Simulated scan of single mutants.
Amino acid sequence: MNVIAMIPARYSATRFPGKLMKDLGGKPVIVWTYEAALQTKLFKNVYVVTDSEVIANAIQNVGGNVIMSKKEHECGSDRIAEAVEFMDADIVVNVQGDEPFIDAVSLSKLIDAFTIDIHNQIDLASLKVQISNKEDIENPNNVKVITDNFGFAMYFSRSVIPFHRDQEIEVKYYKHKGVYAFRKHALIDFYHREMTPLEAAEKIEAIRYLEVGKKIKMIETDVESIGIDTEEDLKKAIEFLKNA
């Protein structure tokens, strides 16, 4: 099974512009992410896909593989789909550029999901982590996911899902971690479809897959990495490195 990693890297992030080039322990966030993906040794190749010469130069300066986007893209899946469309690959893993501390165990679980999927039921797989802090649950920057009894995603939302109406029933909340593994054909099919209504409303690309009938297997992990979505997240990441 030919598995490659793609790291979509857009410079002009809405919530925290230029976040991928912010200094983290002496090197840019995007370089941390690229090197972390390499160090897992799970991939035949690792690429950064970007529209930014600044990001491209940072990766090339450490000897990394860079693909420049030819078009403007609304989401990471579209960006990597353009890059991978004519590549030889079975599974494409989308490693978010703002996840500098992603771990090999979680990535390995995603890839293993396809290895044991003998009936090819899974179009893509992604990660979820249980959260219990009220602030985390209510934070719209944390995308929540609910699944069916077989671990397939039913819906993603920035709102609190599920709504805990009956307090006598135990409810668990899960945050979606933005790391995906795709069968290549599912990724390319996504790329050639228009943005769907709920995806546009929530600004969550995973919803497009659900709206067009794709099956997303959610893999639970207990590793809570630090995604760099805000300046506060960057401060947490810097503090994490100091205490590591």
Results as ranks from 00 to 15, higher is better:
163 F>W: 11
46 V>I: 10
222 D>A: 14
59 I>P: 00
110 L>Q: 01
132 S>Q: 15
73 H>E: 14
102 I>W: 02
37 A>K: 00
28 P>N: 03
34 Y>H: 03
226 I>C: 08
175 K>Q: 10
139 N>Y: 08
40 T>Y: 02
39 Q>M: 13
33 T>A: 01
85 E>V: 06
204 I>S: 09
13 A>C: 15
75 C>K: 09
229 D>E: 13
102 I>D: 02
1 M>H: 06
150 F>S: 14
119 H>V: 14
128 K>H: 09
102 I>L: 08
164 H>E: 10
89 A>C: 04
86 F>Y: 11
188 I>D: 08
196 T>G: 09
125 A>D: 01
136 D>R: 12
220 E>A: 11
217 K>T: 00
178 G>D: 13
241 L>N: 05
208 R>W: 06
54 V>Q: 12
78 D>W: 06
182 F>G: 04
196 T>D: 04
205 E>N: 15
77 S>E: 13
209 Y>W: 07
194 E>C: 07
137 I>A: 00
132 S>H: 11
195 M>H: 08
164 H>C: 06
235 K>L: 14
89 A>H: 04
135 E>R: 15
4 I>K: 14
239 E>R: 14
152 F>E: 03
20 L>S: 05
111 I>P: 02
67 I>S: 02
38 L>K: 10
46 V>C: 10
139 N>I: 12
21 M>G: 02
82 E>I: 06
56 A>S: 14
139 N>R: 13
69 S>I: 07
8 P>L: 03
27 K>D: 08
243 N>I: 12
128 K>R: 13
123 D>I: 03
187 L>I: 02
232 E>D: 11
57 N>A: 13
1 M>G: 09
155 Y>P: 08
164 H>V: 02
10 R>I: 10
192 H>T: 05
44 K>I: 03
194 E>L: 13
70 K>S: 13
216 I>Y: 03
65 N>Q: 05
5 A>W: 07
73 H>L: 06
86 F>Q: 09
138 E>Q: 14
212 V>N: 08
152 F>P: 02
111 I>Y: 01
112 D>V: 06
171 V>S: 04
191 Y>Q: 04
231 E>K: 08
48 V>Y: 03
99 E>Y: 15
39 Q>E: 12
220 E>D: 09
229 D>L: 14
27 K>P: 07
89 A>T: 00
174 Y>P: 05
244 A>K: 13
126 S>R: 01
191 Y>K: 03
196 T>L: 04
205 E>P: 04
109 K>Y: 08
121 Q>R: 12
143 V>Y: 15
238 I>G: 05
2 N>S: 13
170 E>I: 10
146 I>M: 08
201 A>Y: 05
20 L>I: 04
143 V>G: 11
31 V>L: 05
165 R>I: 12
